[in-house]
Amino acid sequence: MSTLEQLKEQIRKALPDLDVVIGWEQGYDAMHATPLFIREEADIDRLIWSPLCVHSLGTYLTGLTKSSKVQKVGLVVKGCDSRAIVQLTQERMIPRENVTLFGVGCSGCLSHARLEYKVEQGGHYVEDMHAITFNGDKVEVAVDGGVESFDFDTVCLEKCLTCRFPNAIATEHFAGEEVPVAPKREKAPSLEAFEKLPLDERFAFWQDQMRRCVRCYACRNTCPMCVCRDHCISTSRNPHWVSQEASTAENFMFQMIHTMHLAGRCIECGECQRACPVDLPIMLFRRTMVHAVKDTFNYVSGADPEATPPLLTFKAEEDNINERGW
């Protein structure tokens, strides 16, 4: 039985006890998937599982579990998605007992941004792509009557290159085979390249990038860890840390807030950058923080449901910061 068939079977069995199960279905065109809310058995047939299933569905959880209509939620999760659930559980943000996870192993998801860039480079319009097939290491795209073929590694999401959690963890169900853990890169190539720049160039880079942010807050809204909703400090006037002015400085301040609030919590799902309508490379911030947390606290977020995130503890003396030399 294929992974998808197994998954459908598991959902079919569990559905009577659940109010809704969230997975993915084919989207508005051949190139996109979109979240699917399964409420009845008939909906199950629309479920798909492929590298187009990019969305981290955990983002819906904190909202859903607060609503009075929904008690029990099922969720299909990839490895990275499951880390978000682990993190939310640690932070007691979701009633974990009301959530049923259907895990899968994932060999990487498509980066629409990278693919579209390549297709444009090849002299095509992205609108003209009308079919996509994933064929082992290759991705074949039907465009303008012809077929363009790309190495999967060149068009996958960057996070997939460094992924250490391809298989969903701490789930109730698991469909298909486990995928071997084989990160292709130690560090994200974009961060590696960025860190080579001298400081003044990095500063100039961000001045240039941050000017473009339109403060749509899509990055925040899609982040599974951003649970503050109406009270987010970046839109609040009390305390009034950032103004609503879309200046470079204020935009940058907002990104810093997001980055700081995700310290030790960000599970590198990359959803923030994927959601950004103007393609700002904000994962550079998130990844830098992820590395800082790893170096300082030896902590990987969303990996262990029993762990306490380092910034959610009080310790007079940190294990890895020896201030007093004792």
């Binding site: 400090i233 609040s236 305390p239």
Partner: peptide, 19 residues
Amino acid sequence: VTCPHGAIQLQHFTDNQIL
């Protein structure tokens, strides 16, 4: 400084005062 969105404030040293 733990509360992400400033729901808890230290009287006499609120975020707004520091700001």
